[in-house]
Design a binder for these strands. Structure first.
Length: 490
RNA sequence: CGGGGUAUAGCGUAGUUUGGUUAUCGCGCCUGGUUUGGGACCAGGAGAUCGUAGGUUCAAAUCCUGCUACCCCGACCA
């Protein structure tokens, strides 16, 4: 009663905040823009991380770790890229605290660093400074490295998981001897991200490339995957950059090719972050709480015993323990909640809030009839399954839930994908229900700016999935080569 | 950085307009008992320098001044 969520239809933003907190994923830290990822949220991240890590390793990447702090002089080398990023950087200037007369800590002015250290907003600079030492010959290439870590970007406005000052991510940094190979790498990664998003997280995405008006400074091509949330706003959930020779030139990283000639190295960088968790929430969850895809749910099955007295509990307990063993053997993440102080009803609501895909009830009835009551979170349906082939039917059900929530999201994404050829119509769509609007654009910055001012929508990407088609810009009427995706976004 | 809001027990809150005993209520927590198939019940109990610093007053959660923090809405962005 007291613990219900605000309805999505009432206030989507409020619903989002409440679900993050009430499901136990994360909470506010008391430090502006920083959050605490709680055990449930962190174990979700760990599972996601493990899956993506496997995919990256399978495709030939290795993990490394570079320092959190970057000397300012190194940081400054790549001018285009640092120009914008530097606006949200925290800088370490001292290394020591001392106590004053009131016994409060103050900065020891004597400890001022000769060179200030920037807390990494991303690691291109320190990595490319290092790559200079690692690369001499074409035989040293390619270098395919990835790093799991945290970065800091001082944001003006923050939201749990979607935008926080500090976030966890992976950043890949690769070096190649040819342009083609680097482009291929950036595209390969985009496909890995797409696969991960769709197959593991159940989030359908649109692949595309950022228009020149909105790409990462220092990159030649910025590939991205964009997903549409339930409220019709889009979320960029992954990016992969083809960086050309920008970083190798800035850090003077050259290699000797087969013909004995020096060439600058070609590179890529790419990343996904804890923002994915925000996307996961906003893609699948409902007014009762989270709905997590079985492949990443920290708890895939929760078993709740229902009993009247000690003797009956012992019998039920016995049966549950056997079932738990069967599931554990299959590496299913199962939790047996036999806490006596909470009633079954309380637990039902709690695990629904936490988005556990399957709940199993076991009481006297179930023991007698060798069956279990099964509740699936995604459709909120109850069913009875026989104990005999429980293992296979549960594995099948988990698979079914995974597919079902993806399909539901895919249907919605397709409904949200709308072509528009008149600005009137365009404004209506954006204002009424949002979504991805496919429209012609004249390629100018000015048009993007005007449309944003008037509708809040921006160009998310130039999508791959659609044929090139000539037309007229929806805003200016000038000629256009292709449709781009407009949307309001997070 | 601009606009708005909030700050009272672990959480959510009443009280602030119009100053006045011992600061309200619910959830949670502790003890004992009864319960347990969709957020159980009874009895008892613990828990608060009312965000912070100062001021006005016989008297301040309440009035005045400064400060701080966080949240929400925009501009910057994964």
């Amino acid at each position: 009663m007291t613990n219900q969520l605000t309805k999505r239809s009432q206030d989507y933003s409020k619903w989002y905040n409440e679900i993050v907190i009430k499901s136990g994923l994360a909470e506010f830290s008391g430090i502006r823009g920083f959050m605490i990822i709680k055990p449930y949220g962190y174990s979700l991240w760990e599972i996601m991380k493990e899956k993506l890590d496997q995919m990256l390793k399978k495709s030939g990447h290795e993990n490394v770790y570079f320092p959190l702090l970057i000397p300012k002089s190194i940081f400054s080398k790549e001018k285009k890229h640092t120009k914008i990023l530097s606006e949200g950087c925290a800088v370490v200037t001292h290394y020591k605290l001392i106590k004053n007369k009131k016994k409060e800590f103050i900065i020891d002015k004597e400890s001022r660093l000769e060179e200030e250290l920037v807390i990494r907003p991303t690691s291109e600079s320190i990595i490319w400074k290092t790559y200079k030492n690692w690369i001499q010959s074409y035989r040293d290439l390619p270098i395919l490295l990835n790093q799991w870590g945290n970065v800091l970007r001082w944001e003006m406005r923050t939201r749990l998981f979607l935008r926080t000052n500090e976030f966890l991510w992976q950043e890949g940094h690769t070096a190649h001897s040819t342009q083609e190979e680097a482009i291929e790498e950036a595209e390969k990664i985009l496909n890995i991200y797409t696969n991960f998003s769709e197959k593991i997280l159940g989030i359908p995405v649109l692949q595309g490339i950022k228009p020149h008006t909105d790409k990462f400074y220092g990159s030649e091509k910025t590939y991205c995957i964009e997903a549409i949330m339930q409220d019709g706003k889009s979320l960029q959930i992954g990016t992969s950059h083809f960086l050309g020779q920008n970083f190798s030139k800035a850090f003077d990283v050259q290699f000797t090719n087969k013909n004995g000639k020096k060439e600058y190295v070609w590179s890529t960088s790419w990343g996904v972050s804890t923002r994915l968790i925000g996307g996961l929430i906003m893609t699948h969850s409902d007014d009762k709480g989270l709905i997590l895809p079985p492949k990443v749910a920290p708890i895939q099955i929760v078993i709740i015993p229902i009993y009247q007295n000690k003797e009956k509990f012992d019998i039920i307990d016995d049966m549950v323990k056997k079932i738990v063993k069967i599931f554990e053997k299959e590496k299913i993440r199962v939790k047996y909640d036999n806490i006596k102080t909470l009633t079954p009803g309380w637990k039902f609501h709690e695990y629904e809030m936490k988005g556990v895909p399957i709940r199993i009830n076991i009481g006297e009835d179930e023991v007698e009839n060798k069956k279990v009551e099964v509740f699936r979170r995604d459709t909120r349906e109850k069913m009875y399954l026989s104990w005999i082939d429980l293992k296979s039917s549960i594995i099948e059900l988990l698979d079914n839930i995974q597919k079902n929530i993806y399909k539901k999201a895919l249907d919605r994404t397709q409904k949200f994908l709308i072509k528009s050829d008149s600005y009137q119509d365009f404004k209506k769509i954006i204002n009424n229900h949002g979504g991805f609007v496919l429209a012609h654009w004249d390629g100018t910055k000015n048009t993007v700016k005007k449309i944003q001012e008037e509708t809040e929508a921006t160009i998310r990407c130039i999508p791959f999935a659609f044929e090139r088609e000539k037309g007229k810009c929806i805003y200016s009427g000038k000629p256009s080569f292709q449709r781009v995706i407009f949307s309001k976004s997070y």
